[in-house]
Each structure stands twice: as structure tokens, then as C-alpha cells.
Write a protein that binds this DNA or RNA. Structure first.
Lengths: 127, 127
DNA sequence: GTGCGTACTGACCTACAGGTCAGTACGGGC
DNA sequence: GCCCGTACTGACCTGTAGGTCAGTACGCAC
């Protein structure tokens, strides 16, 4: 995804570099309500593979967004939670989530209507 | 990028589907201040290829985020601007941009320090 | 000693976003 | 007749994010 990009051109660039993985925002969303075990997270994100889930959790941990707590038991137990830093990121994402929720219907409608591409002649404005 | 994903799991998912291209947020950012010609945009986004820039502009146009105005002159002139819908998306992105700008130094520092991966033993908490 | 549940790890593969580069249409200037 | 600048288009290639799947360590229960 991102990771080790050169100096960012703007703040959004930097944020996307941190949260740009396929499942990362969903992970943040899931951890927002409460601490979760690895297996819980996997069940929470239908379609994610174990490999990628761990991978993205590790990256988020490296970025100090999530905290990983290992309990040396058998069978093993690992709990993931948001750090304060992660919580602040989640807050910053909230307006975007609200926008998406608010306009989801419109987006879906546009997507469904796609293919009705107007001819170039019609797209052009006469001067 | 996104395009025609199934029903979204949450609002952020939907928003990312719209704005998830490599250059799309930068395009929004550039158009936020003022209308731009195609060539201006290309110069504004160092590293973008013409093909991809056009592609992403077309997708944003299809999503009613940007407006494309063609002036039938020679040489051709095409101006891109934000729609009201696009402006609202830009507003929703602002907190994320602020977060990134605010914590950019930290992110860069973390990235630079990466490789100092603590041993598993040290990462584990004794109970 | 066989099988269980958990949280991983690693080799392998694939799809596709995005990059490269050459080509097109248009009229104006020389 | 030829080249210029602009805004594209399309064939081709590549890097890599992410998916599949098989394997591991660990103690406990039976």
C-alpha cells in the first residue's frame, strides 16, 4: 500500500499512506467500539484473508495506530485495541464516513446508470 | 480502483470507492482553489501520466465530482472544476488532511525508525 | 499419541492499477 | 508542406496488493 513513500505532497497523502490498505479503515471502525481478539476481527471483516489481516494489523501497530497485547495462554490469545493516536485518526475519518453514508444512494445510482455515456458531441459545450 | 463494488459495508467504504484512485484526492485538492485546464493539472501533479490523469478525471466526472467544460478552439482547451457535490466531498476530506498534516512528522519518523523490530519476546506482555 | 483451537508464517499465484510510449485531430504560423 | 501546442487514445508492460492454501507451536483433553 503506502509505506515509506517520499515526502508527502499534502496531509491527505500522509493519512492515506497510513490508512490506505484495503481493510485498514474497517479495522479501525471495528476497534473503535471495543478491543477485539484476532479471530473476532476476522469474523468482523467478511472476505479478509488471515494473512492480509495480520499484515495490515502489523502495519497499523508499527504506525502506532493499534496496540497489540499478547496473553501467553494456550490456546494463544491476542487482543487488538486502538491507541490514542489511532482514535484521533478515527475521528478524522468520521466526516468522510458521514459523507459516504449520506450519499451512498447517489453513488450506487450513478454506478448503476454508468454506460449511458453521452456522445462527445453532446458533452461539448458550444461557444 | 473501486468502481462498481457491491453494497458497501460502511460510509467510508463508499467514499473510498469514489476517491480511491492514486491521484484523485490531489485532483480534488488542486481543483479546490480554482478551475484548471488539463495541462495545468498535469503540471500540478508531478509524476502523473497523462493516461491515468484523464482516466481519473473521467471517473470523477462520471461520479459527478468534477465538471468538464470543453471549448472548441484550436488548440483545444478543456477546463475542469469541482461540482457542489465534489466540494462537499472535499470538505469531508479536510479533517483527514488536517490529521495528516498535523502528524506528518511523526509518521515520517516512524517510517524512518522501521526495521527496529523488537523481538517477539519483548513484544509479549507477561501476565 | 491423536486431535482440538488459536494465532500466526511463508511459498505461490493472480488481477489490475497505473506507467511508457507512440499516435491522432485540429487550425495557425512560417 | 511542415512543425507547433493541446488534449487526448490505445496497445503494451510491470509492480505489487492481496488472495489461496498448507504448515507450525503450544498445551490440554481424552
Amino acid at each position: 500500500m503506502g509505506m515509506t513513500k517520499g515526502p508527502y505532497t499534502c496531509g491527505i497523502d500522509a493519512a492515506i499512506d497510513v490508512v490506505g490498505g484495503k481493510w485498514k479503515v474497517l479495522i479501525l471502525w471495528a476497534l473503535h467500539e471495543r478491543t477485539r481478539r484476532f479471530g473476532e476481527l476476522r469474523r468482523e471483516l467478511p472476505g479478509v484473508s488471515e494473512k492480509v489481516l495480520i499484515q495490515q494489523l502489523r502495519e497499523l501497530e508499527a504506525d502506532e495506530i493499534v496496540h497489540r497485547e499478547v496473553y501467553r495462554e494456550v490456546p494463544p490469545r491476542v487482543e487488538y485495541s486502538l491507541t490514542d493516536f489511532g482514535a484521533s485518526l478515527n475521528d478524522a475519518l468520521r466526516p468522510l464516513g458521514a459523507w459516504g453514508r449520506e450519499h451512498m444512494a447517489r453513488i450506487v445510482r450513478i454506478r448503476a446508470t454508468a454506460g449511458d455515456v453521452p456522445e462527445e458531441a453532446e458533452r461539448v459545450s458550444r461557444r
